[in-house]
Simulated assay, not measured.
Amino acid sequence: MVFIKTLNIDGLIPKIPLIQGGMSVGISLDNLASAVANEGAIGIIGTAGIGLLENDKVKNVKEANIEGLKKIIRKTKEKTKGIIGVNIMVALSDYAELVKTAIKEEIDLIISGAGLPLNLPSFLEKDSKTKLVPIVSSLKAAQVIVKRWWQHYKYLPDAIIVEGPDAGGHLGYKKEDLQKEEVQLEHTLPQVVKFAEELKKEHNKDIPIIAAGGINSPEKVKKMFSLGASGIQVGTPFIATHECDADIKFKQALIDAKEEDIIIIDSPVGLPGRAIKNKFLEEVEKGERKPFICNFHCIKTCNFVDAPYCIAQALLNAARGNLDEGFVFVGKYGYKIDKITSVKEVINNLFQDI
């Protein structure tokens, strides 16, 4: 029997020590986040492109994203009294506006990765209750964030998510490093756990470490807790649920995927990504997709001059079920999912016999 710690994120204590991955564009919104929260875990809204869901022809994308985020947070709160958060990527052009909006809406926590969220505490107001949780892929990244936050804001992270290279979507590693032993979650997680223990001695603050990336079975869950994690973050298994906000064709693409279909791509945002190979990505690979007019300017690092497609539009198309003009981001072991279940079943499966 593995001892499962209580996950305590500075007073936010879910019944189940699980955070649902914040998947964008349009995959984890009010339905999925509230369903996870209602099961006693932490539900997360994916914020990238949130203002494009109803109308992707909007003139003012920043304004649409702010209004879209407000709307989805409020809808989620109507559906649950549980713990909910948002995932806001540092790479987003409107990062600051989305963070401020989430804090004003009194979201329980903000998770921030795809870059180092070095100024995240600067957006908190005196009476803000929102907790701040960075995502890192290395001990060095955790150390840099903690040093900056403490020096500039006298603030320490309320938790840290360590995401390994088996995750879906954008990955915080160079493509050629993904197989290296020293970047694997089993290697990095204990390093960051030890760092958190040192911080506790120095500052008397518990910083729970949450493991993420490729956690798809009770055996993996047990392994993460045995390595010192206080919780897990899981994304891909929640895609193939009735409650997931994506179109059924998006879910079916995951169910139909075989092991060889899950590939690493070069994303226009400058990071490698893990996705399901399809006709759209094959056309990109063959050079049949041409540079486009960038209407959104949504990602700071996007090389839209040379990029053969718009990542926001492609992900939005896929979420709507148009996989001829988009693709599905997925974790390394997504091919093992073969049917649509429920949020409750996903959580029960991960924590069975624990």
Rank of each mutant, 00 (worst) to 15 (best):
I4S: 11
I4M: 15
K15C: 12
L18V: 06
G26L: 10
D30R: 09
N31I: 06
A33N: 03
E39A: 14
I44D: 01
A48Q: 04
A48T: 13
G49I: 04
V61K: 04
E63S: 15
G68V: 05
K70H: 08
K71H: 15
I72K: 12
K77S: 09
T80W: 10
V86N: 02
L92G: 03
A96P: 09
L98V: 08
T101K: 02
E105S: 09
S128T: 10
T130F: 09
T130V: 11
S137Y: 04
S138H: 04
S138Y: 02
L139W: 02
L139I: 08
K154D: 13
Y155E: 05
E176H: 13
E181P: 08
L189F: 10
V193D: 00
N204Y: 13
I207R: 01
P208K: 11
A211F: 11
G214N: 03
E219P: 09
K220D: 13
G228D: 05
G231L: 08
Q233G: 04
E243G: 05
D245H: 05
K251P: 01
Q252N: 14
I255R: 05
A257C: 12
K258E: 15
D261F: 07
D261C: 09
I265K: 11
D266F: 12
L281V: 10
K290I: 11
C294F: 11
H297I: 07
Y309G: 04
L315C: 10
F327I: 12
Y333E: 10
Y335C: 06
V346R: 01
